[in-house]
Amino acid sequence: MAFAPSDEPVALKILVAGGFGVGKTTLVGAISEIRPLRTEEVLSDRSVGVDDIDGVEGKTTTTVAMDFGRITIREGLVVYLFGTPGQERFWFMWDELSYGALGAVVLADTRRLTDCFPSIDYFEQRGTPFIVAVNCFDGAERHEPDDVRVALDLDPEVPVLLCDVRRRASAKVVLVTLVEHALKTLTAAQR
């Protein structure tokens, strides 16, 4: 059932979360080959005006697209990026994504900082290492990372940085910061 140890590929999973329109798709696209990945959301409300599919499981689903990116570090070592909507109704996806995830990037927009509260709460509760990357939109007032940290009531060890997710170099710094943080968390836990 298992592959020979010599060709055991190692795959790592990184999540990109944050509120609506905060730049998740842009970030994944800036750093990796982005591809569509669809999943189904089960709609519990049957009055949404959809076709009757009775007799076929009696389930009503709608398709939700995730951002899916892949970075090949070397042969046999791949980092997968998954960008998911941040609203609580999408937590069904997060539950599966965060299992075994190396960590998460929570993108924040200073004009709507509260949008990232659910993401932060979620990763804090799950114990998933995360960082907060503040996407600097044109025209938005610049905030210092420390102000953002206070506003979000983050633990002192959670890295906060400013970024422009449209720039590949900036997206790279974001991911490196996350993996470094995950490494720190890991070595601290081993001590």
Partner: peptide, 28 residues
């Protein structure tokens, strides 16, 4: 087909792998 669970789930990815990823990302 055969299916193998990700190496990362348990145990945690090793320090060596993470350092390799950090260097790999920097070099992108």
């Amino acid at each position: 087909i055969v299916v193998r669970p990700p190496v990362t789930v348990a145990p945690q990815p090793s320090e060596r792998i993470l350092k390799e990823v950090i260097n790999g990302l920097r070099a992108l």
